[in-house]
Amino acid sequence: MQVPSAQATAAASLLALEEVSCRFGGLLALDRVSLQVQPGEIFGLIGPNGAGKTTLFNLISGVGRPTAGSIRWSDGAINGLPPDRINRLGIGRTFQNLRLFQRLSCLENVLIGLHHSARAPLLPALLGQRSFRQSQGELRQRALELLELVDLADTARQPAGSLPYGSQRRLEIARALATAPRLLLLDEPAAGMNPIEKEELSALIRRLRSRFDLTVLVIEHHVPLMMSLCDRLAVLNFGRRIALGTPESVRHDPAVIEAYLGVSA
């Protein structure tokens, strides 16, 4: 996998945020944030709690609207589009606070992600004809493969809500992958995992990137993990982007050391 340089131009970027702001009443959750994500890179977003990272994901995925600025995807503006449209354009996401379909099985959760691959002619479906059953069988097979990829094949029939925390996080990734995204937004995918699980997750994200030609935007608090995982990082603090660059340059950025890393550095 070819990793683009930090100087790559905005024109070639997959996702470009230009001066994006988001205001909640008196709170400016995002303040003129600009950044570009290049195809194929793993782009990290770090910053203290309340910095606006999740808000940024919400704006990109259509869950919220920016109050100013524009979000460009490939070559069109997507701000203001509803979340289902944005997903169809190739942006998949997970949620920091786990939003699985709790009562449904793991398999069904992934099948729901495969909604748009599950299109079938109405009449054979209603009559339960062989052609429909066959296509459903293939669909289940694909869902099972995705579950296997995140190491959840054994729990395919269990309700999603009954899984341990770490497994639920991986199920969210499988469900998002099922929607065939080109860009995957991962909101604290390692939260609640132990150090070994975190390492495995990091390897999984790299594997998924090369297997599905993915671009990944990831939020995570564990800084050493992010330093080794990400090609580039942006640092948010109080809604502002205070640094952007390779892990090495971010690590030595005085503003970052003061605002965020200062504690541990």
Partner: peptide, 9 residues
């Protein structure tokens, strides 16, 4: 909301 984020209209 989660359903919509999975592309379901």
């Amino acid at each position: 909301l989660a359903a919509r984020c999975m592309g379901i209209p």
